[in-house]
Nucleic acid binder design. Sequence first.
DNA 1: ACCTGAACACCGTTCAAGT
DNA 2: ACCTGAACACCGTTCAAGT
Lengths: 217, 217
Amino acid sequence: MPEKNSYHHGDLKNALIKAGIEILSREGVNGLSLRKVARRAGVSHAAPYAHFADKQALVAAIATDGHEKIHAKIAGLGERYPDDPLRQLVETAWAYVEFGFEEPDRFRITFSGAVEKERDYPALVEMTAKNFGVLRVLVARCQTAGILNPGEPDLMAVAVWGLVHGFVSLIQEGQVSHSVLSHHSLWDMLIFLLNQVSRVKIDSQELNDHSVTSLAR
Amino acid sequence: MPEKNSYHHGDLKNALIKAGIEILSREGVNGLSLRKVARRAGVSHAAPYAHFADKQALVAAIATDGHEKIHAKIAGLGERYPDDPLRQLVETAWAYVEFGFEEPDRFRITFSGAVEKERDYPALVEMTAKNFGVLRVLVARCQTAGILNPGEPDLMAVAVWGLVHGFVSLIQEGQVSHSVLSHHSLWDMLIFLLNQVSRVKIDSQELNDHSVTSLAR
DNA sequence: ACCTGAACACCGTTCAAGT
DNA sequence: ACCTGAACACCGTTCAAGT
């Protein structure tokens, strides 16, 4: 779709975001540089400045893209599992875990503050609020159905999000000992965590399509 | 205590760690550079390489120091509040929250994976395990006392840690909306979270010496 | 054993100039 | 409007040489 004009790129902005995500997954957060991104997109190292104010702005765009990916994963769960808010909650949490383990560095940039001043990037703030909104509605629905503990939905949403986010982060950053990890699958651990905030017993075997066990870090 | 010999520093290694922590709190993670650290310690930019293999090694030393600070805060709570594991748990969680908000960048380096390969730094791994050990023992004690939900202590410790860690991280990285933050104090939010994993009702007013409300980010 | 100074490859950012 | 090339200040790391 981009015009391959020799001089003008056509859609350099999106090409830079895409190149940034690729470098991120290959070389990690520390390996991401504007000059590498430009090189990979086939332009000079000063070209990105026509589309992004600075490196932070590109990072913010990558973070926004990450939120969009999460949104695409969880937005349709309401229709896919109608009248089953528990299932929706579990699948939402699992989507979060999957994102964290499949693309750890992208996850880090998206959720773990690679962007210094979020409020300077309205698109990022908006996507963050959008995803939190989806979670809050889902949490409220689970509370009405007697699945989740009562309490203010905003706080309960923060609790559920924090629980899953902390879980993914701690494992990802190598804070959880190998012995704990070797005795439990990610799926079983997640279900254990969700049972903490749940009023009904969530059975780990209820659906075993999520049999991710190894971490190999 | 360090000999102020004109040429030899005496205890440059610790001086570099200290200088690094200071730069961290003044200029943030992105502002931390080996050359700045050397400058602040009053040595040439190549001098640190006599004590640290590379920048990662200095960062690992700073992270280890952060774990030591946390350990100093929580290790004595057992004697300070004997026969009151609930109180010990709440104070431990609060110490974690305090560390996160008083020194956000140091917290980030300590817990949020600034160190790429932890297993290359045995002192860091050891301190991480030590702090997790304190938490696990405390959690097990709370379970015996009927305060925390039952379940394997290792998993339950990960759940409690993840809950608090995720809470601190999400707020710190600006992921939690301003409207949620303006309606609840950090203390009340933490108590709400801990009530999720608790079998007894933890009263927020039980002790109100922790009246931290403003965030002003 | 501990530290310095020069050197190298890399980076973010700016700016006049080209298309 | 979009991109290039040179320039500047900064960084991590290495290494021969000094104390």
